[in-house]
Design a protein around this nucleic acid. Sequence first.
DNA 1: TATAGTGTTATCGG
DNA 2: ACCGATAACACTAT
Length: 272
Amino acid sequence: MPELPEVESARRVIEGSALGRRIATVEDSDEWVCRPHRPGDLGRALVGRRLTAVHRRGKSLWCDTSGVGRARTPGPTLGIHLGMSGKIVIADRAGREIEGGDYWERGRAPGDYRYARFTLTFADGGAMILIDPRRLGRVRLDPAIELLGPDARTITPAEFRAALSGGTAPIKARLLDQSAVAGIGNLLADQILWQAKVFPGRPVRELDATAVARLQRATHRSVEQALAGGGVHTLSLIEHRRPGGHCPRDGSPLAHGRFGGRTTWWCPTEQV
DNA sequence: TATAGTGTTATCGG
DNA sequence: ACCGATAACACTAT
């Protein structure tokens, strides 16, 4: 289930395997995932076009589309959000599947399309499919990407300081606020706070400059480690984030509670 | 059987 | 109005 690193691997799969193929049919009948569009809207907008590029900011993906036929005017962008249980599957011409990242701990058999919520069929016979059991993902045209904060992978120190300044929210709630910093989910937030040795419930206005700097470095380090390791599950705190788990640095029993509306785990001796 | 869950957003309350 | 907390969304796994 995707946070920034998993969404980036889905982006790379689309980039490597879906660009340039002409869209022949669109299955957009899931009115919840495709809201506010009506069934048929996405098909009318996309059939005959090709995906020409795929971008990511935070956990949001969007594809540029070509003009139809010889028309120069590009089409709308196709926005995709994976929600909590979304996954991109690409089938090549031979029907073989490439999955968008291995972040689904629970395996899915190739060819299991029970939870297909949106499908582009290409003229060459392949397809790009959004598999999403919980239907918390989203597909829509021309999504408002500008509402998101700077991407957590590339945010600058000045942008990071601005994102954390002002307000009274616990730092964990602010890290989860996609309009402040885009891409940090519940697990990544716990890892970042643990790495920076900051208590998740600390109000942002109480953070001094050194804590903010530690948080920024921890954000970059955690994102890069998760990208290299194949997902947020491979991060050190996350592997111990369960009942009976201990801090991988000092061995203290981990504490858990609720901040920003989400279950939170932390080291009660190091995170202050 | 009851509950929690790696995300987002509308709504509620201070 | 601003800010933060909460419930709802739909479904699966424990």
